[in-house]
Computed example of a mutant assay.
Amino acid sequence: MAAASGPVRDLMQHRLERALRERVRYRYVQPRVLREGESFRIQSPCCSRNVDPSGGMIDIALLVPSAAQRWCLSARDHLNGTWVSRFKDEPLDALLDVLCIDNERQFWP
């Protein structure tokens, strides 16, 4: 995937932040979208206190661009300190829906 320029990257970050405001879980906290090269890492305060008893910021998801306007979405395995791929080569809108609804609590522990 070709590297996106600054304004395009800023637009993508804004799009992700806007989508996260519409999520189902933990609507009262403010997640952060951080750029990591071409990828976006999403952090959120740990409201459940399942991962961080003090409620600090934890990694919850990683969006990595794939080929042809597709993306991969990974969840954080906090016990092992690794990313676990959950969805591959999907449209961004579909992955944002999965992330914001998160019925199985894969992302918002």
Rank of each mutant, 00 (worst) to 15 (best):
M1W: 07
A2W: 05
A3P: 07
A3I: 07
D10E: 14
L11K: 14
M12I: 14
Q13K: 13
H14I: 13
H14F: 12
L16E: 07
L16V: 10
L16N: 06
E17Y: 05
R18G: 12
A19D: 07
A19Y: 00
L20E: 08
R21A: 11
R21S: 12
E22M: 09
R23Q: 09
R23F: 14
V24G: 02
Y26M: 04
Y26I: 01
Y26D: 12
Y28H: 07
Q30P: 00
Q30S: 10
R32C: 07
R35P: 00
E36N: 08
E36H: 08
E38M: 08
E38A: 11
E38Y: 01
S39Y: 00
S39L: 00
S39D: 09
F40R: 03
I42T: 09
Q43R: 05
S44I: 06
S44A: 10
C46D: 15
C46W: 05
S48G: 08
R49V: 08
R49M: 12
R49K: 15
R49G: 03
N50D: 14
N50M: 13
N50P: 01
D52E: 14
D52W: 05
D52M: 14
P53E: 15
P53C: 13
P53Q: 15
S54E: 11
S54T: 15
S54L: 10
G55T: 07
G56Q: 06
M57G: 10
I58H: 09
D59Q: 15
D59P: 06
I60S: 07
A61K: 01
A61S: 13
A61C: 07
L62G: 02
V64G: 03
V64P: 02
P65T: 07
S66W: 06
A67Q: 08
A68N: 10
A68D: 09
R70F: 01
C72N: 09
C72F: 01
L73E: 04
S74A: 04
S74L: 06
S74T: 00
A75H: 09
R76S: 05
D77G: 00
H78T: 04
L79K: 07
G81W: 09
T82N: 03
T82E: 08
W83Q: 03
W83Y: 04
S85W: 00
R86D: 02
R86F: 03
R86S: 02
K88P: 00
E90V: 04
P91F: 03
P91D: 12
